[in-house]
Design a protein around this nucleic acid. Structure first.
Lengths: 269, 269
DNA sequence: GCACTTGTGAAAAGGCTGTGAACGCAGGCG
DNA sequence: CGCCTGCGTTCACAGCCTTTTCACAAGTGC
């Protein structure tokens, strides 16, 4: 499995030598002599970013901070000339993952990038191809699709990834920010409603194919939780009058007619 | 959230200085002058392990490799004297996460340990997900909710956070200002009664689901204290007449009827 | 008894989510 | 080349839930 890195540096000697080794190792390397907007970095799907903050001038710290906060999953490595302990500490605390001093041996740079990106992918995608089952649902990563019986839900890529993430963390409450971070790959902007919109789309498709189950539960002020539950398990207290509801009727399709679906909201839970 | 580290090194000067800073930062640090079997490391539940391989002699590489492969979730940091590029590369490829050269500033060592362990916990489950138990109560941060048996208390986000804070500091008296500061995140305005109101809501929900226990105690003029206590341990002096209350009746739902709940108040000491 | 603190219920304010629809962008197709 | 279609994003708004605020009752300490 190869590593994708980008180098932001004006030191052509260093870059050239590194590029040579990177190619030999089968890595993909892109290079820039000036700052790259974090948004564009997303598209590159990098494992690591090497950067010499010297060329950023006054913007250096803020740029590093921006990159680190927007792309927490990206390994951020500084390679620069002389620096003080205070600078290194500041950088590392800010989100930089490793700080190397030039001149530095390209092989060591490679090894450090490996070490830093190893941590990443470690916990991540590995068991990914295992299908999940939840209620009537079967989620198959190999098809990027979910099924009820043999009927596909016709999920788009994002819809699938959201559903898969939620299902993977079954019965955990996931905060919107975390969800966004893990599905979209970068930090959620304040006021972004994308997660909500996709949850709605998912719920529509789930409801359509598996109307007697509810899967995604809202936790007000926090986020969402995935938990397949047969519909109709409404608490007795909330029922009009009747004594303890007879267990014989488990689901009550009538009460949840097609016209209006009500999603039970869990407070803070 | 504090970090747990262990240092394997014979350089007492370095260890001492580091231990001092670690303590100041609220980290927990254990120290050894010789190799520690990987098995024992597991029990320490470390975030990171600092090690000077010099003291391991010929065993150094194999030991590092063993630790790295047996505890892939542990951040492994080498801090040692002079080394060659080849050694550093070998170590990093072997599973070492960072390699520092002595003499090295303890602050930088701390920052590097932080950086390395940040990567870890990042993708992995947050440390804060450890559930708390108190009386009949189970507080589960992963669900932002508290349970009695399997019944959720239906706490809102703030209610949960307040309860969690109190429970975390069990049997400590917390001042209103401190509580507000930690739950709301900013300083409490003079005359703000929010904390009181939320305590009432919590007490209502606790009372409803776990009527035979009392959890939140008022300290007049100060604040609140969390301490699960079985109900019915009312001081004899306060009882009308009867001698020592027979233990047979632990709770007396009638005397604490729904209309009026009495909270015992502790006076400022 | 007086000054102050805390408990309580309810109203007001504020914020969050569900929802439908418009917008922009890209790829496919005529 | 332009149109169409599918997808992701953004917006506005309604409705509901939560939080804050307020006034008053009850309790505490001097």
């Amino acid at each position: 499995m190869s590593i994708r890195i980008a180098v932001i540096d004006t030191d052509s000697g260093f870059v050239t030598v590194l590029a040579k080794r990177a190619e030999a190792a089968g890595w993909s390397l892109s290079h820039s002599s000036g700052p790259v907007p974090p948004r564009d970095l997303v598209a590159l799907k990098l494992n690591a970013l090497l950067i010499d903050p010297a060329l950023l001038g006054d913007e250096a710290w803020s740029y590093l901070e921006r990159v680190a906060s927007m792309l927490p999953e990206l390994a951020l490595v500084v390679v620069t000339g002389r620096s003080t302990v205070a600078q290194r500490v500041r950088g590392l605390r800010l989100g930089v993952d490793d700080w190397m001093t030039k001149p530095c041996h390209p092989e060591e740079a490679m090894a450090r990038v490996e070490a830093v990106s190893r941590r990443h992918t470690h916990g991540r995608r590995e068991v990914e191809s295992a299908p999940l089952t939840a209620g009537e649902l079967e989620i198959r990563p190999d098809r990027f699709q979910a099924f009820v019986g043999k009927e596909p839900l016709d999920l788009t890529r994002r819809e699938f990834e959201l559903l898969y993430l939620l299902a993977e963390e079954r019965s955990q409450v996931l905060e919107r920010e975390k969800i966004y971070q893990r599905v979209w790959g970068y930090a959620m902007a304040h006021g972004d409603r994308s997660v909500d919109v996709f949850v709605r789309k998912l719920r529509q498709k789930l409801e359509k194919h598996s109307p007697s189950w509810s899967y995604i539960h809202t936790h007000f002020g926090i986020g969402y939780r995935f938990e397949p539950e047969p519909a109709g398990i409404v608490k007795e207290e909330l029922r009009p009058a009747a004594g303890p509801a007879p267990l014989e009727k488990q689901a009550d399709p009538e009460s949840q007619s097609s016209s209006q679906v009500v999603h039970k909201t869990f407070t803070a839970g």
